[in-house]
Amino acid sequence: MKILEVKNVTKRFGGLTAVNNVTFDLEEGEILGLIGPNGAGKTTLFNCINGVYKPTEGQIIFKGKDITGLPTYRSAHLGLSRTHQIVRPLNELTVLENAMVGACYGRENMNLGDARKTAMEMLEFVGLAEKSDVLAGALNVAQKKRLEMARALSAKPYLLLLDEVLAGLNTAEVTHMLDTIRKIREQGVTIIMIEHIMHAVMSLSDRLIVLNYGSLIAEGSPEEVSQNPEVIEAYLGDPDLAARLLEEEKA
């Protein structure tokens, strides 16, 4: 079953077209990787999907319901959660309270008691349980990324949008986070992940889509996409150079 349909979505900021006529579908249970150079419009596309921005043109269909232009809290209630590329912890609240906000106001609209239980489970899941009493502002970046994740998961979403959750993490932290994402998928949550770390996104995703200057330039399995000359050019500017680099990497 299709969980998400993005139809001809365009988002303009004044004269700048950040997302240009993008169309794709997402099957339930899938992990979709969303890649593309910096400034390609990936975050803006997320913002259009969950209602932070109203698309200039096009439609967003979530679980068969047209959610285009609905306030972002409505999409949260329907089961769409996300993390932020630039972390947004609620600094003066504790780590537990941060996750409880997600649980209380997310898809299941929990009361405080249930929310506390769910939030604690999710903190354990992402490995932040021992920090539950700490103020969120006091966490380091890696912990704040995991808090973003715990908060989004506490809402019990059907669809999770992950915006560069691996950026800025060290190797051990990346491994830990990849593990976490795999476990989330095992629980049946559908995921779109924006990621720059190629080996990570290649190994996790069932399918990839590539944005460049706001347009969708490629779509397919990780293998197909990584062989696509247009994608290689978008990343490296020179297809020959890119091909050589790919060869070297294989060797």
Partner: peptide, 19 residues
């Protein structure tokens, strides 16, 4: 809890579902 989420970051609160 919703009010305090608004105080800390209104946009993030809204993304989490606070009306």
């Amino acid at each position: 809890l919703g009010l305090m989420a608004i105080r800390e970051d209104e946009d993030a609160a809204e993304v989490m579902g606070v009306i």
